[in-house]
Amino acid sequence: MKCTNCGSDFASDQLKCPYCGTVNEHALKLAKELQTYDAAYEQKREELLETGTNQVLKHLTVRLGVVFLAIVLFSFGFIAFYSYRFGVRSPYQVRGERYVKNKEQLAHYMDEKQYIRAYLLASRTDPTGEHFENYPEYAEDLTDIYTYCLVLTSVLQSMDSMDAGDNYPSLGDTELTTIQIFYSYGGKGEVKKELVQEVDGYLKNYYRLTDEEIERLKALGTGEQFTLDGSADIEGITKERMEEYFGK
């Protein structure tokens, strides 16, 4: 282009004439416009980036939330199904044909006088555990068998220790309480009578209690102290008697 002052030729994008220094108004105007466009462009770019990132994050949050929620719900559902389908005392395991079969089996064990086995079956297949609500007709007997099992296991443990050559594990407070519970609660049927005879046998033959003492123990009220030879030291006295009888 030509300079408006000296008439020299110079490039149109130069801001001043290289010969006389006159300002090129046209180039200056263009430069200012370009600067404005640049600023607007930068601002728009920032705005778009901000909005875009927010949009991406928003979608990510929602999708991640949905996916996590789905996985969590599925996992909890799976756990619930697994415990229902394969759980030991779950309703699935004891309803329908299984329940009928279990009842028949339980009746068979009771008839055969396999009481402990009957108790194990009932306990394992009843969702209410030791309440035996699944087997109401045997509930009382099963409760008696349960307490009898506690007595029996403590006697067997005691005998094991005796055989192993340890000190005589005599009739302690725990065993005495269990026996008292056995005598006090439960049914009054034939099963209970048989089990009472068994426990009487252990008390008489193993713990060396007399018939009179056993009867006194049976008649003992709540909160009353059981004594042997006028003493409350049941453990010590039974220990002496056992040592004397079994010869240790």
């Binding site: 927010n54 994050l57 928003k58 990510l60 949050t61 991640l64 939330g65 996590f68 996985i71 969590v72 996992s75 909890f76």
Partner: peptide
């Protein structure tokens, strides 16, 4: 959003 994502992730791993 970052807080929500972190929150989801933490809760997710606790549940898992």
């Amino acid at each position: 959003y970052y807080v929500l994502i972190i929150l989801f992730t933490v809760l997710f791993f606790i549940c898992m």
